[in-house]
Design a protein around this nucleic acid. Sequence first.
DNA 1: ATATATTTTTAGTCTTGTCTAAATTTTATT
DNA 2: AATAAAATTTAGACAAGACTAAAAATATAT
Lengths: 220, 220
Amino acid sequence: MTTFSEENYLKAIYHLGNHGQHSVSTNAIAEKIETKASSVTDMLRKLAEKDYVDYKKYQGVSLTEKGRLTATNVIRKHRLWEVFLVNKLDFSWGEVHDIAEQLEHIKSLKLTNALDAFLDYPSHDPHGDPIPDADGNFKKISKIVLSKANENDICVCVGVNDSSSGFLKYLDKNNIALGAEIEILSKEPFDDSMNINVNGKSLAISKLISNNLYVKIRST
Amino acid sequence: MTTFSEENYLKAIYHLGNHGQHSVSTNAIAEKIETKASSVTDMLRKLAEKDYVDYKKYQGVSLTEKGRLTATNVIRKHRLWEVFLVNKLDFSWGEVHDIAEQLEHIKSLKLTNALDAFLDYPSHDPHGDPIPDADGNFKKISKIVLSKANENDICVCVGVNDSSSGFLKYLDKNNIALGAEIEILSKEPFDDSMNINVNGKSLAISKLISNNLYVKIRST
DNA sequence: ATATATTTTTAGTCTTGTCTAAATTTTATT
DNA sequence: AATAAAATTTAGACAAGACTAAAAATATAT
């Protein structure tokens, strides 16, 4: 069983890039957790002892599979609770973080799964961050087709499905480039067109367009 | 700000009868919290220091107003979360206690109030225990099941839960009618039976009976 | 009322997680 | 390659909470 403190360290290591491979430095963790490097060293030794991390003195640290699973589980709970607070209790997305920071440590697998079901298995939290499943796997679909986005979503353009010159010219003309921020102002159910805001200009786009533009949802 | 441990002690003192006046003994607390008496002494000194309790060596302890408010607030959160788990997440009332034991320590007044509203301001938790308001006041419980009454309570019969003819005949035979006055002489923890006094006659009733009779507490 | 039993407190130790200050290792610079 | 700078670890201390064993206070029984 992990303590709150252990979980916070594992989460920090995960967020500091150890979902990939590269090991994480003591100082980086200290800064993230707002503690002293010496405290981090102490905790790393303990986590290594318990097999949550691979750690060699002076060489940085990385999560073991056990550690990774624990970290993603905490992140899963954090994001599910955020969805609960925003969707069910009408909190604004700005005020949920501190509370979720507490709720993420509640220990009950059954509760987590029941909450997930109650919220209709959300794939993303209110900030647009993906919610891992119970095995720590993230849905790869951080990229969706623009037509799948919802009213009030704010997205970032990350790619196109149709790369014909005609389509790309259209995008150019309207200043829609990779990295462009797109806000969904409204969706018209009748013909699936939508009104969006790009670079401060509003624009009506047809279903044909929105079906061929990949975006990442940033926030809602 | 109170720690989890402090909150558990305050809650224990409250439950051990300090909603009334009489002070609570060190050993009683130790048994309730499942810790050693010496640990209790340490904590009591600390709680007294922080003004949550009145404590004099060897004389037992009682809650200050500040302590009482903290205790009822924890109880409020505990019971609200139980309602959430049972009503919204379909937990059975048997499995909610351990989880609520964790959730009761989440610190956010706004969350507690939002949860209260989300649950439609429940007055009782799934076990029938009353939920105090934010000021620590319990609704003067209009109707409770007889089995919930305590030794020496004097109640008035106000209804039944089971209205089968068999049950009603039993009540008839024993002169238990609406408005009948019932005094709890004793409760037997072993089988949850109780000895009561109705219309001047004493009567032993089983848990089955006391669980299906609604009463209002008149005095104690 | 006095000896005995029970309850409560004290004294000292342990673990967890943190800190500061000093020592050590690694990295960067010349 | 030598040295300065930065990062990391060690050593020693502290606070919170808990424990054991022993001492002190209170309650009980004869």
